[in-house]
């Protein structure tokens, strides 16, 4: 294996594109090193992107925030601007791993790992976040929703890396929240998860919403029917029940060591309902 420090996104992209063997990007390394240790991943080239200028910074842009691909979870949590703008995104990113893992892990790594259970992914999807991709054919922007391709797979082409994720500006009276279910209180992979991002009018009626689920399908699911269930409502019990039902209907999970199909399905609905209530309160709505 060779280890390379990339000084620019172009250099990283070129090295990844040119490597005939198995090449991997190293940001936080909290998934990559585990896979290498397990011996099920033989890597020929590791490209460390942390020295790329700007890749560890958070900057304001067009009313939103651009978060560098190598910003670690703990750095995100220490950034007042992100915490204010996307508390649901931050709480999701902060759930990845332990305090120690937080010192290294990144949202983009969480996304590129391709796990359907990645915590930050549903929150980013609910926030309509967009990643910037650098590749052999130049730079492009892509919704987070379109990056996962299935367990362990992404739609990124050989030589493409994500350099940042953009959280777009949100209207007034917006709120978001992310909840996951794990058997313990920490240190587990999500068995089911839900992110809700919504906007209210002055009267507390939901005018826009995005609801995303994790760990209940081969990749993150954006549930339009769940959003429709709460748009135009004040999140009354009937709307919440419809939201949960829509989420359950969108689940196509598997039975495995972490949970059953029935459990994941039912819990996704419960979490979506609870997350919606938190997001509603954060948006300034009261019931």
């Amino acid at each position: 294996m060779r280890y390379m420090i990339a000084q620019s996104a172009k250099a990283a992209s070129a090295a990844l594109a040119e490597e005939p063997g198995n090449a991997r990007v190293l940001a936080g390394g909290t998934d990559l090193l585990v896979q290498m240790k397990a011996g099920n991943l033989r890597v020929d080239l590791v490209v460390d992107i942390k020295k790329i200028p700007g890749i560890r910074s958070i900057t304001a842009e067009a009313g939103g925030l651009r978060i560098g691909a190598a910003v670690a979870g703990s750095e995100l949590g220490e950034h007042a601007g992100v915490c204010a703008m996307g508390p649901g995104v931050v709480e999701a990113a902060r759930l990845i791993g332990s305090t120690q893992v937080q010192g290294r892990c990144t949202m983009v790594g969480n996304l590129c790992n391709g796990s359907p259970a990645g915590d930050s992914v549903p929150a980013l999807v609910a926030a309509a976040a967009v990643v910037r991709v650098e590749g052999p054919e130049g730079s492009r922007d892509c919704p987070v929703l379109d990056i996962p391709a299935g367990p362990g797979r992404t739609t990124l082409k050989k030589g493409e890396i994500i350099t940042s994720v953009f959280l777009p500006a949100r209207p007034e009276r917006s709120g978001d929240a992310y909840l996951r279910f794990i058997p313990r209180t920490e240190m587990d992979i999500a068995v089911a998860s839900a992110a809700v991002n919504l906007t209210l009018d002055a009267g507390g009626t939901v005018t826009a919403a995005r609801v995303a689920l994790g760990a209940v399908a081969p990749k993150v699911v954006l549930v339009d029917a769940a959003a429709r269930a709460i748009i135009g409502t004040k999140l009354d019990d009937a709307a919440l029940a419809a939201l949960a039902a829509a989420c359950e209907a969108a689940c196509t999970p598997i039975d495995d060591k972490r949970g059953t199909i029935a459990f994941r399905t039912s819990t996704a609905g419960v979490l979506a309902r609870r997350a919606a209530q938190i997001a509603y309160a954060r948006a300034g709505g009261s019931k």
Partner: peptide
Amino acid sequence: CGTGDCGACSVTVNGRLVCSCLVLGAE
């Protein structure tokens, strides 16, 4: 564990708490 799950290898790198099993020496 060697997989970042137990914390017995905790050190700080540039002031940040990490599992040293999840950091490359090269980094």
